[in-house]
Design a protein around this nucleic acid. Structure first.
Length: 270
DNA sequence: CCTGGAACCTGGTAGC
DNA sequence: TGCTACCAGGTTCCAG
């Protein structure tokens, strides 16, 4: 799904319409990853104050309380002024006086969870272990390098784990490692300070570039109905067997922890 | 504490 | 055409 760029694009497209709206009803199927954690009638009448993001979570701030929304692998949000009846995979509606925010999620790995505060246990269970935001100033090369030195696992796995830096999923991990010239299997602890610095810059670059392209639409993802286009400009992701755009060597695909990793054996020699 | 693997769920596609 | 196997943007849980 949705990695950081897709979630952020979604946030930017829905925030203006949602902020200031008053909740009139909440429809919640029993089909998502976790229960909502509040009786829907209790939310009626509350005003939406802001739409924020932490990692791959959207945080809808209410007059009192928060809705934590995760898009899982296949989730997408759409703003509807004339909502048709919910379809088979429409699992959540936030009905407001301005329109309806609808979550569509065929695979149901997504979630909407209510928390009365972000430091409440129900929220901390989801947000507490998250790493630094990659586009914030707090993500700095020296601390990134120090964090990598504590991990023996492959750098690709460490990026995906999200406890060092958030928001980098399967597409952008492969892309960032290509831009940094690092082999995805390299143990994180063996990455030098200089190469960690390159990876730090590569992560920012690829996420910002994807953001500008409206994210990646492989199959399910859409932000408010609009496709993203980053998938058309990947260096390695989804390009197994095709020539590297830099050196012409065929791109390889391998499995790391049940996920596909794409890399150029020439440009990412170690 | 860290790590890798299985599990969660549905749908699309490749191969026979 | 039909069936099977495998693949897909993520995260949690468990055993070692």
């Amino acid at each position: 799904m949705p990695e950081l760029p897709e979630v952020e694009v979604t946030r930017l497209r829905i925030a203006d319409r949602l902020v200031g709206a008053h909740i009139e009803a909440v429809r919640c199927g029993l089909a998502l990853r976790w229960p909502l954690g509040v009786e829907p009638p209790a939310l009626v009448g509350r005003r939406v104050q802001a739409v924020r993001r932490r990692g791959k979570y959207l945080l809808i701030e209410l007059e009192a309380g928060w809705l934590l929304v995760h898009l899982g692998m296949s989730g997408s949000l759409t703003w509807l002024t004339q909502p048709p009846p919910p379809g088979r995979h429409d699992h959540f509606d936030l009905v407001t006086d301005r329109g309806t925010l609808r979550l569509h999620d065929p695979r149901r790995f997504g979630a909407v969870v209510y928390a009365h505060a972000l430091d409440a246990p129900v929220a901390q269970r989801l947000l507490g272990g998250l790493g630094v935001e990659p586009l914030d100033a707090a993500f700095d090369p020296a601390r990134f390098h120090a964090a990598l030195r504590r991990r023996r696992a492959a750098i690709k796995s460490v990026l995906l784990a999200g406890d060092v830096v958030v928001g980098v999923g399967n597409i952008y991990a492969s892309e960032a490692l290509f831009l940094a010239g690092i082999r995805p299997t390299t143990p994180a602890m063996r990455i030098s300070r200089a190469r960690a610095q390159r990876l730090h810059a590569a992560i920012r670059q690829v996420l910002q570039r994807a953001l500008a392209a409206g994210g990646s639409t492989l199959r399910d993802f859409r932000a408010d109905g609009q496709d993203g286009y980053f998938q058309l400009e990947t260096w390695v992701y989804g390009r197994a067997g095709q020539p590297c755009r830099v050196c012409g060597t065929p791109i390889r695909v391998m499995r790391q922890g049940q996920r596909s990793t794409y890399y150029c054996p020439q440009c990412q020699a170690r």
